[in-house]
Amino acid sequence: MKRTLIGTFALVATAAAVATFVVGCASMPPDADLNAETVSMLKSSFKGKGQATMDRLDQDETQRVCSEYFGKPLPPATVSRIEKSNLDAIKWPADGKYVGDWKAGEKIAQLGQGKQYSDDPAKPSGGNCYACHQLSPAEISYGTIGPSLYRFGKLRGYNDETRKYAYGKVYNAEAYSACSNMPRFGAHGILTEQQIKDVVALLMDPKSPVNQ
């Protein structure tokens, strides 16, 4: 009798613990549920317009992880994983040259159009570098989301390693700094190979106003 009582008590206690656990789950949905609900709400709240089609709401792995960790420290293993996968995907220039014309680069750095539904997709996109970076000292209307790039080449040295780094960074910033705010201009087809070379020239040509 005693044993039965104890057994019943244990069973009730276990059931209560399980019930508490289940209720806990139901009232506090894990982040996965909230993420799924966010994605589903986004998809029902936007409409494709012009070149800005609905697939732009689909995140790749980098975007998904970087959204999750926005403003929080990334685990070191995640940093290496993001940087490696983005670095591996860089398409380097077939001719091995990284530097184009800095004058064309300056125009690309000034130009903000491209990829918005309000933009003409037939026209080339700009890099809009000045929106976030200081470059040529003559341009005083520059933003501060990214670091100043004034004297980029002069400070780092006019060598192949730095030219290659500059190309890679503009092509895919996530390859060098996981969850950087900077767009992946090459990887996402915002700028062409030649345009990226021209921007690299703006940064790396000793004659560029950036390096005066």
């Binding site: 609900e37 966010t38 732009r56 975007q63 767009p183 087809g189």
Partner: peptide
Amino acid sequence: AIGEKIFFYRGGPHDFACAT
């Protein structure tokens, strides 16, 4: 809670979120 998630949601060709 969803509004906060949307604020940090990176997407599109430029990877931008509101938080960028």
